[in-house]
Amino acid sequence: MEPNFYRTMVKASTEADCAEILGGFRDLVKRGPGVGVKLLNYYKGLPISYPATLVEVSGEILELDVHPQQAVALGISGRTCIKCGTFAHTLLAEVKDADVRRMMASLHNFSYVDLMVEQRASLRLELEPPADAEITIAGRKVAAKALDVSLGGFSALSSERSLLEKGDEVLLKVMIPNLLHNTVTPLELPATVVELAEADGGELCRFSIGSDPQIEGVLSRFIFQRQVDLIRELKEMSG
């Protein structure tokens, strides 16, 4: 889980919250075998969420049986969110170990979180590699790389300080890959700056875009094929 996907919630203290969560899992394990929870990871923006079965709590480590694709995502991310009706909030845990072949995982360092990613209106997938982009405002052009895409907007890393401000209206040009034909489709569309942060000598810019049937068609086809490719990657890595 990327840090911008969630916001940590501290009820008492970090240590007390972790102890409370472990106590809750111990009580669940005592009920007998087969108690389930749901794990949630994001692989390059694609949500990976499968049921997992509690096995035991050993010291401060929770052992679970997991789906092989979840095990792959756990190993890559190093963190996971846990959804369990026993707890009033979503949980975050660090991954101590994830074994794809044995379909097992060990989790520790638990905390409560507010899962901000669930507030997104549409799926946001990483562009790999980042796509060439250009930001134009008041006749000034700034080169950039588009990092991710959704039906509602883009994130882009500018090559230099953009001098943009939140709320600015820009013309955004992005070279969207056509994954089926191994070509690119140039998109030019009006966009609004919704967030800015300094990064790597430039700025990380988040843009929202308006509704346009032609543009939505191009993006929908890309997002669908990107999901297919990511699922295939996970299946290959999980054996």
Rank of each mutant, 00 (worst) to 15 (best):
residue 155 S to Q: 14
residue 135 I to A: 03
residue 215 I to T: 14
residue 219 L to W: 01
residue 81 C to V: 05
residue 53 T to Q: 12
residue 208 S to I: 05
residue 60 E to V: 02
residue 211 S to C: 04
residue 222 F to T: 00
residue 169 E to V: 08
residue 150 S to A: 11
residue 9 M to L: 15
residue 216 E to W: 04
residue 117 V to R: 11
residue 133 A to E: 09
residue 165 E to R: 14
residue 47 P to T: 02
residue 233 E to S: 07
residue 18 C to T: 15
residue 145 K to S: 13
residue 14 T to F: 15
residue 55 V to F: 01
residue 18 C to M: 15
residue 150 S to N: 12
residue 79 R to P: 00
residue 210 G to S: 03
residue 179 L to S: 02
residue 34 G to Q: 02
residue 126 E to Q: 04
residue 77 S to P: 08
residue 40 L to N: 07
residue 230 L to W: 11
residue 36 G to K: 14
residue 191 A to Q: 10
residue 208 S to Q: 11
residue 141 K to V: 12
residue 99 D to T: 07
residue 68 P to M: 00
residue 9 M to Q: 10
residue 117 V to D: 10
residue 177 P to Q: 09
residue 67 H to W: 07
residue 15 E to C: 06
residue 127 L to D: 04
residue 36 G to N: 09
residue 21 I to C: 01
residue 138 A to E: 05
residue 1 M to L: 14
residue 219 L to Q: 02
residue 149 V to E: 01
residue 102 R to Y: 02
residue 106 S to R: 13
residue 85 G to A: 03
residue 176 I to T: 09
residue 213 P to D: 03
residue 220 S to W: 02
residue 221 R to W: 00
residue 212 D to H: 12
residue 164 L to P: 05
residue 16 A to V: 11
residue 64 L to I: 11
residue 61 I to V: 13
residue 120 R to L: 13
residue 202 G to T: 02
residue 21 I to R: 07
residue 204 L to Y: 04
residue 62 L to P: 13
residue 182 N to W: 10
residue 79 R to N: 00
residue 105 A to T: 12
residue 113 V to P: 10
residue 186 P to A: 00
residue 112 Y to G: 04
residue 158 S to C: 02
residue 76 I to F: 08
residue 29 V to Y: 11
residue 126 E to F: 07
residue 235 K to C: 04
residue 198 E to D: 05
residue 159 S to A: 15
residue 148 D to G: 06
